[in-house]
Amino acid sequence: MNVFRLSGDVSHLLAILILLMKIWKTRSCAGISGKSQILFALVYTTRYLDLFTSFISPYNTAMKVFFIASSYATIYLIYLKFKATYDRNHDTFRMEFLVLPVLVLAFVVNHDFTPLEILWTFSIYLESVAILPQLFMVSKTGQAETITSHYLFALGMYRALYIVNWVYRYYFEGFYDLIAIIAGVVQTVLYCDFFYLYVTKVLKGKQLTLPA
């Protein structure tokens, strides 16, 4: 565990808390893509099956349990508790366009052809593109609430910080995992456009709006 990895985890934790708080305090999930949240729940469920097979540390277990539980809680808030506020007309990205190619890729490019390893690989690939329905929704409506921008920024920073962590681990531990690295870079690149808007608009006190 190095400082970049820890910062990445904290950023990830913060993103989830911001999202849950936004929905809970405003009693509304307007502007949030339920589809991205379903994909994230699928990501955590398939990745953390090793909770049943291997124990790493109390920290590791606690974070995994939190990520799984919070992702289902978010889905509950969007599709049940506050479903009247869910903006389904703008959440039109087709999930199967992401899930199916990623599933095929996980079967073809993996470290080991075993069920747990394929599911882990699937989850890594899926995470890299899971935010697309959310970004698609923002581009469709042309704007995002400031709190939603903070959520997206923290979520994007999490994998960006992991990349620095991987560079660090490569140099100081001789450790690297190409599947995680490539997927992590793809994931971070998808946020670049948003990062630019966040720095040039949201940090200057303006709402995030896209040029028409």
């Binding site: 990520f67 470290h111 001789g174 995992d177 190409l178």
Partner: peptide, 10 residues
Amino acid sequence: QVNKQNKDEL
């Protein structure tokens, strides 16, 4: 060194 068992990351 290829990762397989070292899944300590989240």
